[in-house]
């Protein structure tokens, strides 16, 4: 009779040491090649003729206009999409109605349609040759080849982010807490702000950050609807491409660095919030 010694037991979920090392190594290698290296290359390219020269390129009026436009478009489309996203997720998860499944598919549409195609659709819909577009141009509010078109295209592309983050969370939480608040005499708005929003705030934050990153970075749809007019409808991504095509590589890469930094700011913000509220996050996901 042999007794198995303790050493022969290994927790079932622990991989052998070499396997773990290879996996971690692989992930780090991939991250380096695919994420860090390009980022560093962009920064290096921007700075190859000195910081002063790089910053000089940002003072160009067209560059300034592009930065302003990108920030403006994000500032308009992100809050609106956050509101729409909450409304859509609310309608889908808190009520039963016919057409719900169709609505979910519709929300995903911007993910599945190529941005260029989406841009073309807006040109057909609002362009000067269409009925609506002709009327808008006559009224002095052109949409295509103008800032409103950039906003509309960006909103379309970024529509799913908030709703997509919220739907699973709100489905998982169900309506019980809202119903409890109702029985305690709270009004609809009070319930929304004291029960619903606190319960979804993390998902909402992620959705808004993703939405913002994409809103600032969108290229395809905006390229089509904006007409890429320098100093008027050119956003940062469009400007980067134009500068690059004109062999103004320092200017192109400086603008690219700035765009990447804006994205990094949002990521840092997210990590900081996660770190600051780690205990709350843990408490709200348990239960």
């Amino acid at each position: 009779m042999t007794h198995p010694t303790l050493a022969t037991f290994r927790p079932a979920t622990t991989e052998p040491d070499w396997m773990r090392r290879i996996l971690i190594g692989l992930v780090i290698a991939l991250l380096t090649v695919l994420l860090f290296a390009p980022l560093i290359a962009v920064f290096a390219e921007a700075g190859k003729r000195g910081l002063a020269f790089a910053l000089q390129s940002l003072t160009d009026p067209d560059a300034q206009s592009a930065i302003r436009l990108t920030l403006t478009v994000a500032a308009i489309s992100v809050p609106l999409n956050a509101a729409f996203g909450i409304a859509a997720a609310w309608a889908i998860t808190k009520f039963d109605w016919r057409g719900k499944a169709f609505m979910i598919t519709l929300i995903d549409l911007p993910f599945s349609v190529s941005p260029v195609v989406a841009g073309l659709c807006f040109v057909l819909l609002f362009g000067a040759n269409s009925a609506i577009g002709g009327w808008l141009v006559a009224a002095g509010h052109p949409v295509i080849f103008a800032v409103p078109g950039v906003v509309v295209a960006t909103m379309f592309i970024t529509f799913p982010f908030v709703a997509r983050e919220l739907i699973p969370v709100m489905t998982e939480q169900g309506r019980a807490e809202e119903e409890a608040a109702l029985t305690l005499g709270a009004s609809g708005w009070r319930i929304f702000f004291t029960v619903t929003v606190p319960n979804i705030r993390w998902a909402l934050l992620y959705g808004v950050l993703l939405c913002n990153a994409r809103a600032m970075g969108e290229f395809g749809a905006v390229a089509v609807v904006s007409g890429k007019i320098r100093g008027q409808t050119s956003t940062m991504p469009l400007m980067i491409e134009m500068l690059y095509n004109e062999y103004l590589s320092v200017a192109a890469f400086t603008m690219a660095t700035l765009l990447a930094l804006l994205a990094l700011v949002t990521l840092t913000l997210k990590s900081a919030l996660e770190w600051r509220f780690a205990d709350q996050l843990a408490a709200s996901s348990r239960h």
């Binding site: 807490e177 409890a180 305690l184 709270a186 319960n199």
Partner: peptide
Amino acid sequence: VQERRAGFVFQHYALFRHMTVFENIAYG
């Protein structure tokens, strides 16, 4: 619901998970 003023205890309690016990009880 609000006008009925029925104290309702739900099967899975439905406590507000982001509030302390004090705030839960004080909610109404």
